[in-house]
Design a protein around this nucleic acid. Structure first.
Length: 530
DNA sequence: TTAGGGTTAG
């Protein structure tokens, strides 16, 4: 039986769910709904527009209408809605009820769900099933498997699959490159990228973001520049966002400005993601007025755009404006998230707004529905610690519902140093050691507390203890852009050709700052600073 | 039907 052509045409023109229901009634009355083709059309529209109707329709559809297409449509609609557990549950029940055999499309959707859930076990089970049913050689299934293994941080499995396949397309290469960056295999990722026979803008953006993801921002920017010299590769939004992120972290303002000018020159529409990347770049480079300008020009500003600017303002000593922007975002109906609260609490901390910070912390869960995490407790400890409320800060550390991390302990120990309370610092470090929460950083901070109190014997003891335990601290790193070139400096690294001049200049600046500080503190003029 | 993009304290 074939549904009337007129009804099928009407289904194609259907715009609303009520129109669909009318056509569906007609198909039911005329028994044309038993036609699997007509059923497929109904469920496709319903899955996109009214998922509860799609579920009902599937449940009541006759068995012979429950084709793989209908099942796949339902699974895909769950995946599209982000309901990945439901997608897998629907698949299992469909298989159990109607002897539905998955096809290449089914695996594609199931593997996307597993990727999103990070569920490598289920993904591997579907891999076995796909092998048994002979679907693995199909591009979409094989690439879906590689992506699934990469998303579940099972990059070795992804690599094996990649090595086994004879016809690797750009998607397989790009998925594996992402996986290598994700697990820190930077050289392997780069080797794959250099070897891949065809590169497109997605593979270029993957490598730019990959470098940025592991903190190799100069390399990310180099790749962005290399991409621009190629013909036939489109410099799309994702590549530009990656390059702007690298500029932001390197402080490469000239490069960032060049990219912004390029976007304007080529009339590239700045969407909210690109807008946020520009805001972040200008804010991190200290050009807050431009960050503001881009922010105001960005349409559909969301929590990311607001948070980027709040963070920038707070980091550049404009905490009051940051707090004003926090109020504005709520007034504009943008809901703050957990990152926003980190920035806002930090702004309160820097501005000494202890009461306001405490109030905001308390309203996080009750008013905004954001559960305070370890990072927020870190901000709270910093807020109290900076205000000299060391006992209160200590109480927070002792009573917080999760183990304190190095940020929380660092905030408390830093407060001990600033307020000259070595006993509390020592007590905390000993307590940390007893609980086996030993971080290299806390020993350095304890040593700094003693140093600030001129207790050099204690400093030596702490440093000796660190050596004995083999505790190491990651060296600090800084970078600056001069005349379009980025220079990076790591603690202890003396390879830079003009390092002696740099050190000499830093000594001069240091001396100058000390003069200014003394002059200000004691209202005394010690003569002209060098 | 499969690969790539934005906010994070000290």
């Amino acid at each position: 039986m074939r549904a009337g052509q007129r009804c099928l045409d009407l289904l194609d023109q259907c715009r609303t769910i009520s129109q669909l229901k009318q056509i569906q009634s007609h198909l039911t009355v005329t028994a044309a709904l038993y036609d699997p083709y007509a059923s497929s059309k109904v469920i496709t529209f319903a899955a996109l527009n009214d998922h509860s109707h799609a579920r009902l329709f599937f449940r009541h559809a006759s068995l012979h209408c429950r084709t793989p297409f209908m099942c796949n449509t339902m699974i895909k609609s769950y995946v599209d809605m982000g309901q990945h557990h439901d997608a897998l549950a629907f698949y299992r029940s469909a298989v159990a009820e109607s002897l539905f055999l998955p096809n290449n499309y089914t695996f594609s959707f199931l593997l996307t769900a597993c990727s999103q859930l990070g569920d490598g076990f289920s993904g591997a089970c579907y891999h076995c099933l796909a092998l048994r049913l002979g679907w693995v050689p199909y591009d979409f299934v094989r690439n879906g498997l590689i992506h699934m293994y990469v998303s579940c941080e099972l990059v070795e499995a992804a690599r094996r699959l990649f090595d086994e396949c004879l016809h690797r397309d750009v998607i397989a290469w790009t998925a594996l490159i992402n996986g290598c960056f994700k697990c820190g295999k930077v050289d392997e990722a780069r080797q794959l990228f250099d070897e891949m026979p065809v590169k497109n803008s997605v593979s270029w953006s993957a490598v730019i973001h990959g470098y940025a993801q592991v903190g190799l921002f100069a390399e990310a920017l180099e790749m962005f520049k290399a991409m621009q010299n190629l013909e036939g590769v489109r410099m799309d939004h994702a590549c530009v966002v990656g390059a702007l992120t690298a500029c932001a972290f390197l402080g490469a303002l000239d490069q960032g400005r060049w990219i912004h000018a390029y976007l304007n020159r080529n009339r590239v529409e700045v969407d909210r993601i690109l807008g946020t990347a520009l805001i972040e770049m200008y804010a991190k480079c200290g050009v807050l007025e431009m960050a503001y300008r881009v922010f105001e020009e960005t349409r559909d500003r969301d929590v990311y755009a607001f948070t980027a600017l709040i963070s920038g303002l707070s980091n550049h000593g404009r905490s009051e404006e940051a707090m004003g922007l926090f109020e504005r975002m709520q007034y504009e109906g943008v809901v703050p998230n957990e990152v926003t609260f980190i920035c806002v609490l930090s702004a309160c901390s820097r501005m000494g707004l202890t009461d306001q910070g405490l109030m905001i912390f308390q309203t996080m869960r009750e008013v905004h529905g954001v559960e305070p995490g370890v990072q927020h407790y870190g901000c709270l400890v910093d807020l109290l610690g900076r205000a000299g409320m060391l006992e209160e800060a200590k109480k927070v550390v002792e009573e917080m519902p999760m183990q304190p991390d190095s940020y929380v302990l660092g905030a408390l120990l830093n407060a001990c140093r600033v307020h000259g309370n070595a006993n509390l610092g020592k007590e905390m470090v000993e307590s940390i050691a007893r609980k086996k929460l030993d971080h290299g950083g806390v020993h350095v901070l304890l040593s700094n507390i003693y140093a600030s109190l001129n207790k050099w014997d204690e400093v030596v003891k702490v440093r000796k203890g660190m050596e004995d335990k083999g505790v190491q601290k990651v060296p600090g790193c800084s970078s600056i852009e001069v005349n379009g070139s980025v220079f990076e400096f790591v603690v202890g690294d003396r390879l830079f050709p003009f390092i002696d001049d740099v050190v000499e200049t830093l000594h001069c600046i240091n001396k100058h700052l000390k003069f200014v500080h003394l002059d200000k503190d004691e209202d005394n003029n010690y003569g002209e600073a060098p």
